[in-house]
């Protein structure tokens, strides 16, 4: 089985077999990342461009390491602000980069759907590294990888996603992926941070955090963007934390062996308490490690699509 697509834009469009393939392949790459010499010659001569319109050290670095371990050349483009403020359109920027013979363009952009514009117009393989409020497919893949590694399976697990669901591309990608792989997904947060009609994506909605956590196998805590304050989604961070901060005591409502995840960076004491973030059940750093293996797998599989 191979991945028959040029781009990785979202999880929504992936079927179960494709997700399985990426996760299986990532397992092999995790072995590679455990070697003394962590570099294989697979993508020698290929050029990977990190095109980031939003600051993100973590995701960019993870992609960069993944590409370098596959022996690809990596170029980082950081562009601040949207195309409008620069006077050059996104497409112009991307066409310029393609003209330099980029094989992969990894894009992070504040506007939902920006990677789709590139994918439609360029021959390069486009990987979505987070677009607006839409999706962050490699994050969901690494989350699913981490869950499968810990729990041995995804099917049948209960996963509670807590916090700002409305503005979270991580939540969306995970909702698509986890439900497709057979998990039961719950979301919890204040009403203004739960997107409209999210139930239609196959999740159940909770406003009470303890209820949402009850019997959960996996707790996924989302980062609360501090900019959300003052927009009346919730009155204050203080009250948000009082209602939705994952504390030791609240985590106790989940199953005894529940694992605790966070896509980072963590606001300690706001969405998650320091003891929980650093506790035994936390897999936050494993997520980061697995991110590299998953991104290597994605680069490898897309390079074999025959399109580039």
């Amino acid at each position: 089985m191979e991945l028959k697509r040029k781009d990785l834009l979202d999880i929504k469009g992936l079927d179960q077999e494709e997700i399985q393939l990426i996760l299986d392949t990532a397992e092999s790459f995790k072995e590679v990342t455990g070697r003394e010499i962590k570099k294989v010659p697979t993508l020698r001569g290929k050029t990977v461009v990190n095109l980031f319109f939003e600051p993100s050290t973590r995701t960019r670095t993870s992609f960069e390491i993944a590409a370098k371990r596959l022996s690809a050349d990596v170029i980082n483009f950081s562009v601040s602000g949207s195309s409008v403020s620069k006077g050059e359109t996104l497409l112009d920027t991307a066409r310029n980069i393609e003209a330099m013979r980029a094989d992969f363009i990894i894009i992070r952009h504040p506007a939902s759907g920006a990677p789709h514009i590139l994918a439609r117009n360029l021959r390069s393989s486009v990987i979505n590294a987070g677009d607006g409020l839409h999706e962050h497919p490699t994050q969901a893949l690494l989350d699913m990888f981490t869950i499968r590694e810990r729990k041995g399976k995804i099917e049948g697990l209960t996963v509670a996603i807590i916090g700002d669901i409305a503005h979270s591309r991580v939540a969306r990608s995970n909702i698509y992926g986890l439900t497709r792989m057979g998990a039961r997904v719950r979301v919890a947060g204040p009403p203004a941070l739960i997107p409209a009609e999210v139930e239609t994506l196959g999740v159940s909605v909770f406003y009470d955090m303890e209820e949402a956590l009850s019997g959960a196998d996996v707790i996924m805590v989302l980062r609360i963007q501090l900019e959300r304050q003052g927009k009346n989604y919730f009155p204050t961070l203080r009250e948000f934390a009082r209602l939705y901060c994952l504390t030791q005591e609240r985590a106790g409502h989940a199953k005894g062996d529940a694992m605790i995840m966070h896509p980072g960076p963590v606001n300690r004491g706001i969405e998650i308490s320091p003891e929980v973030a650093d506790g035994l059940s936390s897999v936050i750093l494993e997520q980061v490690t697995n991110g590299v293996a998953v991104r290597m797998a994605v680069l490898y599989l897309l390079s074999g699509s025959g399109e580039i």
Binding site: E27, S28, P41, Y300, S303, G304
Partner: peptide, 23 residues
């Protein structure tokens, strides 16, 4: 040994073979 990642025909061939673990 799984030699897939070291093959010299990866970039010219359509469709990649599955990568499995080296141990």
């Amino acid at each position: 040994l799984d030699i897939t990642l070291y093959r010299d025909d990866l970039l010219t061939k359509k469709g990649h073979p599955a990568v499995r673990k080296t141990d």
